[in-house]
C-alpha cells in the first residue's frame, strides 16, 4: 500500500482514534502520542492491511488496548497522568463561561466513570457507533454493552442533576 492510499484509508477515522485515546488518557499530549503510535503501527502493517475487512474497527481496538496498557503501566509505576486540560472550577456569572464550565463539568463526570463505561459512552454517544460495532470493538456481549451504556448515561444524569440542583455554574 502506498502512503497516499494509506492516508486515504486512515484519514477518516484518525480523529476517532485520538478522541478515544484522549477519553482514556485524559491528557492531550498523551493522547496525541498514543494516536501517533497507533498510526505508525498501522503503517508498519500496511502490507497486510488489505486482509482486514474493517481497518477502522481494527485501529480502534488497537487504540483501546494500547491506552489500557498505558494506563496499567502508569498505575503500576505509581504515576498519575498529568492533565491540565481543564482549569479549576470558577464560579463566573457570565453565560459563556457558564457553558464552558459545564463542558468541563461533563468532562470531569466522564472521567469518573469506570473505563469500560467510559469507552462505551464515548463510542456510542460521541462517535455514534452501532451496537454491533461496539460489541466487536469492546469484545463484549450486546446485553453487556447495553447495560454498561445505560449505567454510564444514568451516572452522568445523576451527576448533572446533583450539580443542577446545587446551582453551581
Amino acid at each position: 500500500m502506498k502512503q497516499s492510499e494509506f492516508l486515504n484509508v486512515v484519514m477518516p477515522f484518525k480523529d476517532k482514534l485520538y478522541r478515544l485515546a484522549k477519553r482514556l488518557l485524559v491528557s492531550r499530549e498523551e493522547a496525541e502520542d498514543a494516536t501517533q503510535e497507533i498510526l505508525m503501527k498501522l503503517w508498519s502493517k500496511n502490507e497486510s492491511m488489505g486482509q482486514y475487512k474493517n481497518v477502522e474497527a481494527f485501529a480502534m481496538t488497537m487504540t483501546k488496548n494500547f491506552c489500557l496498557d498505558r494506563l496499567k503501566s502508569k498505575q503500576a509505576g505509581n504515576l498519575k497522568l498529568v492533565h491540565s486540560n481543564y482549569s479549576d472550577e470558577n464560579t463566573s456569572l457570565q453565560r459563556q463561561l457558564e457553558a464552558e464550565d459545564s463542558v468541563q463539568w461533563m468532562e470531569r463526570i466522564m472521567q469518573e466513570l469506570p473505563e469500560q463505561q467510559k469507552m462505551v459512552l464515548q463510542l456510542r454517544d460521541v462517535e455514534q457507533y452501532e451496537f454491533e460495532e461496539i460489541c466487536e470493538l469492546m469484545d463484549m456481549k450486546p446485553t453487556a454493552v447495553r447495560v454498561a451504556l445505560s449505567r454510564a448515561r444514568k451516572t452522568v444524569r445523576q451527576e448533572l442533576i446533583k450539580k443542577h440542583s446545587y446551582g453551581i455554574g
Binding site: 482514534l17 485520538y18 484522549k22 505508525m40 462517535e127
Partner: peptide
C-alpha cells in the same frame, strides 16, 4: 442540555499532529 451538547462538541475535536510515516 450540557450532556448532549458536550457529546456534539466532543466530536469536533481533531487530531492535528503530523505523523512521520516511515
Amino acid at each position: 442540555k450540557p450532556m448532549f451538547n458536550y457529546f456534539s462538541n466532543a466530536k469536533e475535536e481533531r487530531f492535528t499532529k503530523q505523523v512521520p510515516l516511515k
